[in-house]
Amino acid sequence: MSIELKHVNYVYSQGTAFQHTALQDVSLKIQDHEFVALVGHTGCGKSTLVQHLNGLLKPTSGQVLINGEDIHGEHTNRKALRQRVGLVFQYPEYQLFEESVEKDIAFGPKNMGLPEDEIHRRVIAAMEMVHLDPARLAAVNPFELSGGQMRRVAIAGILAMQPEILVMDEPAAGLDPQGRDAILGIIRDLHQTGTTIIMVSHAMDDIADLATRIVVMNHGQIAMDGTPREVFCRADVMREAGLEITEAARLAGTLRERGLPVPEDIYTQEEIRDAILRLWKEKVHAQ
């Protein structure tokens, strides 16, 4: 399932003194099985863009197409489309409301009008996907869980709708390293089992680990779009967008500036480690 934005513009509070252009001529096509990281500083338009992907916001002009079908078209079943694009907001645990984990996760599938046994099956499957033990936790009040667990319940609530594309706005925000690793592990698994992932994040190291493609936003426009390797070696563009590159890429850049023969496209810890090892071995050989 592909998702495509064609010349999308979005203006908040149009026609008032508070008018503000959040998206400006954004065109983007995301294919099946991609893992796209959407990066940019606060206010660059990422969150607005994300809300266009399942029709929560309607572009002021331009089109959003899912499998070639206009999401705001006259004959489009928007509710059905919304189910195929799952959207997990920032701090999703704040939207839990049911008295048990199971009921909360079932909310989405229930709204889809699925039969009871199918709902139950999906709830169990979703809980397993986020590593929550159904036997132990299904009947528990979600408000009694830890922050990291509550977030996983909220994510399961979206997964139970079995979306083909999963859009996540900073899924690891505010979690400690352990909670963050748990969530990112879940997302990695989902990607590997075939879900297309679009993830907003500020953590460049997480992105370097996971993403197959990075879209950099700045001032409501796409500033850069490419593989992590292409994006992380452009420290200049990233800096202009108010973003950092990975420490490995920074180290590689510094070493290159100081005259060492380090490849230009290094951005992961392993790559820089191997490059330094190579330099070291060459030196030992020379002596």
Binding site: K79, L87, F107, I158
Partner: peptide
């Protein structure tokens, strides 16, 4: 602001 956010989040879960 929060109301707006929760409303959107529940809409994303098919709430009407």
């Amino acid at each position: 602001e929060e109301t707006d956010k929760i409303m959107k989040a529940q809409k994303a879960r098919g709430a009407d």
